[in-house]
Computed example of a mutant assay.
Amino acid sequence: MSSIGQPPRFAPTRDEIETLALAALNRLPAPFAEHLDGVLLFVEEFASADILKDMELDDPFELTGLYSGRSIGQEAQTGDLPPTVHLFRRPLLDEWVETGVPLDALITHVVVHEIGHHFGLSDIDMHVLEDMVTL
Rank of each mutant, 00 (worst) to 15 (best):
Leu28Ile: 07
Ala21Ile: 11
Gly65Lys: 02
Trp96Thr: 01
Asp80Arg: 14
Val110Gly: 06
Thr108Lys: 02
Gly100Val: 08
Leu63Pro: 00
Gly100Phe: 04
Val39Phe: 03
Asp50Glu: 15
Phe119Ile: 05
Leu40Lys: 13
Thr108His: 07
Glu34Phe: 02
Val128Ile: 08
Ser71Ala: 12
Ser48Leu: 08
Ser48Cys: 08
Ser68Leu: 15
Ala105Met: 12
Glu45Ile: 02
Ala24His: 09
Pro31Ile: 03
His86Trp: 13
Pro31Ser: 10
Asp58Glu: 15
Asp80Pro: 13
Pro29Cys: 00
Pro102Ile: 05
Asp58Pro: 00
Leu25His: 11
Glu56Ile: 02
Ile51Tyr: 04
Ala76Leu: 12
Leu121Pro: 00
Pro31Met: 06
Ile51Leu: 09
Ala23Val: 05
Val101Asn: 12
Ile124Phe: 13
Asp94Lys: 13
Met126Ser: 01
Ser48Gln: 06
Glu130Ile: 02
Leu92Gln: 05
His113Lys: 05
Glu34Gly: 12
Val128Ser: 05
Leu28Val: 06
Val85Gln: 02
His118Cys: 10
Thr64Cys: 13
Asp54Arg: 10
Ala21Trp: 11
Asp59Thr: 05
Ile51Gln: 10
Ile107Gly: 12
Phe88Pro: 07
Ala21Leu: 10
Leu25Ile: 14
Ala76Gly: 11
Gly65Pro: 01
Asp123Gly: 05
Lys53Ala: 15
Asp80Leu: 13
Trp96Phe: 15
His35Val: 00
Phe46Glu: 00
Val128Gly: 03
Pro83Cys: 12
His118Leu: 09
Glu95Phe: 10
Glu56Leu: 08
Ala30Cys: 00
Asp94Arg: 13
Pro29Phe: 02
Ile72Trp: 06
Asp123Arg: 09
Glu95Cys: 10
Leu41Pro: 04
Met55His: 13
